[in-house]
Design a protein around this nucleic acid. Structure first.
Lengths: 346, 346
DNA sequence: ATGGCGAATGATAGCGCTAACATACTTGGG
DNA sequence: CCCAAGTATGTTAGCGCTATCATTCGCCAT
């Protein structure tokens, strides 16, 4: 009698599995695994044989299976508001350069500046069992905190400098940077300042800059209340905010735009309207994008280590995964880049 | 005698597993799985009970395990040269918007405009068993083709319009677009053209634009050989290429920059040097970034559907994964945006 | 000799989920 | 009242790897 028939194997594709490689190399599957993951633990000759078999078969290990078995995945979740903002693109480049060198892949999520969307992404990324998570900012939905805590996954928060990060942090003080800009404007002789900043809702980087601006206004005894406008980053919005401020507050003599795109848009509008910069109006930006140095007049701004935020975050994660000792908070420096747009003849 | 001791369970973390949820809801694990993945297959009352248990326990399904078991992962690999170039950032936004709506995550790879790096990334991403792969361009290393073929993973190539895509394709004809730009410059009265294009090595988009330019030069019987320069995209490089061309070919009356960043850098340099645009020199760009509309003078360029390339690619993938019938080649339109930088008084 | 130790490799048993099949229970037409 | 065809849920057996423990084989100190 025939043996009771097994059910059909549900092996997916016709892909090469570790077993075939093992057979070809004349070793056991576990040896293939070791030859690929911890080569120092296998004899040179067997390693060579295994690699040859891998080459011949075109074997690509199934990391889903590997990660499940080892409880370690080679992925890192990265959540940014949007890749469209080039400051985050630079961060991602920094992350990618370091992580891909260590064999890690990036799982990317875009929150669209919404903490609620961020929380959904955290859940979705945690489901992939990432080795680590890199978030933007220090403000998160309550459930985000809960999920992160429960998961135990290493987390790096970036772009800010909160006193008590969830886990690790790489950033700078947005507040101090904004304060320094106002300080610079005052030193350049401007007195009636205005601020244009990204919508602060769900955005603690923008909020920090707003607060730094306000503190500096009070500190230096400048015109209060200073006009403040919220504008999502785009050249057009910068131009419009400029026009609006000059209409409502014609005595304004300098505007601090909390990012360079807004500032550049304003500078272009100044050119169209023949508003003299820096004579009639001083303009300062934030981020030190390439356009700040190239635009005419060149733009005073704050250089922040965008790429380094990414690369350092990646390094911290890798160190942690290596059980190396690391600090938890890295506070990077910003630099005021003084350029023509605030270089007033006095 | 005590039973032979089992070896220690290697259960990783203290995370909630499907079994605990099942116990709480008084059902079997598979029912929990169904309640979450195919809710229409379970009774309303049990579904509610399961969701309640999920809520209470804070259960986050382990997708590594799920994907391994079902041979379907909820990830899509995306390879771009760099996220820093905002045209690719827009594509990623398009991809992300559509994919995250369907519960998919993006695995991001940056190739740095190297086909060899691209091949490594393809291997790394295939190891994660993605549901699909989105590549940039139609030119790939030989081993990339081999790996893709073997894997059987759905692939979408983007930004180009090759006749025989590997699988699916969403793009436009770079050659035709470049041709159209030259056509426009000729119509505007320019005759002695020059080209500045991204390095064509490993970059078929740039190569296509170069070829379109050359064909148009020949077609319209313009000055030959027209000066051609390669420059990686940055404002500074655009400015330098401009200077170089005007030094070596002072009779040049229009320059076509194969991206807007280069063109904008050149326009800013023209301002610094008091070179009249469009009078002394016509300038055209490519991509229709926001800066093209805002810069002074505004920049004639080619609008390409950056976001749509991403969203359409995602839709095609999803349709394929749904076994829906789809076309294989989507050729999108480009639009010449005529602006001040080529609006010569005649 | 001999036993102890490290290096190399193998056998076994899962990782946490879901496909495939099995079973119970419902419904309704003849 | 019975059986066919659904509907809802459960049981079993993997998915393709790797952690863990076991085994084998030298090699050297005693």
């Amino acid at each position: 009698m025939a043996p009771r028939s097994k059910r059909a194997p549900r092996s997916g594709s016709n892909k090469v599995r570790i077993e075939e490689v093992a057979r070809r190399a004349g070793v056991s599957p576990i040896t293939v695994s070791r030859a690929l993951n911890t080569p120092e633990k296998v004899n040179e000759t067997t390693r060579v044989a295994v690699l040859k078999a891998v080459e011949e078969t075109g074997y690509i290990p199934n990391r889903l299976a590997g990660s499940l078995a080892s409880n370690r995945s080679k992925t890192v979740g990265v959540i940014v508001p949007t890749v469209t903002n080039s400051i985050f693109a630079d961060k991602i480049r920094g992350l990618g350069d370091v992580l891909s060198g260590a064999g890690y892949q990036i799982l990317l999520g875009q929150s669209g500046y919404s903490l609620d969307a961020e929380a959904d992404l955290v859940a979705a990324l945690l489901a992939q069992s990432p080795s680590g998570l890199v978030l933007t900012g220090s403000t998160h939905a309550h459930r985000t905190h809960v999920m992160l805590e429960r998961s135990g996954v290493p987390v790096v928060e970036t772009w800010t400098s909160a006193e008590f990060p969830i886990d690790m942090q790489v950033g700078f003080s947005n507040e101090a940077a904004a304060f320094a800009v106002v300080e610079h404007l005052v030193a350049a002789g401007y007195r009636d300042l205005a601020l244009v900043v990204a919508p602060v809702q769900d955005n603690d980087r923008a909020l920090g800059r707003l607060e730094g601006f306000r503190k500096a206004i009070a500190h230096f005894g400048l015109r209060q209340p200073a006009p403040e406008r919220e504008a999502a980053f785009s050249l057009r919005n910068g131009a419009e905010a400029l026009v609006n401020i000059l209409e409502t507050h014609p005595d304004t003599d300098a505007i601090f735009f909390a990012n360079d795109i807004l500032a550049a848009g304003a500078l272009l509008e100044c050119r169209r309207r023949n508003i003299a910069v820096p004579g009639r109006l001083g303009v300062a930006g934030f981020d030190d994008l390439e356009i700040a140095a190239e635009i005419v007049p060149s733009l005073t701004t704050v250089a922040v280590p965008r790429y380094e935020i990414g690369s350092r975050a990646a390094q911290m994660l890798l160190a942690r995964l290596d059980n190396a000792e690391t600090g938890r908070r890295v506070q990077l420096d910003f630099t005021i880049m003084e350029r023509e747009s605030t270089r007033r003849e006095r």
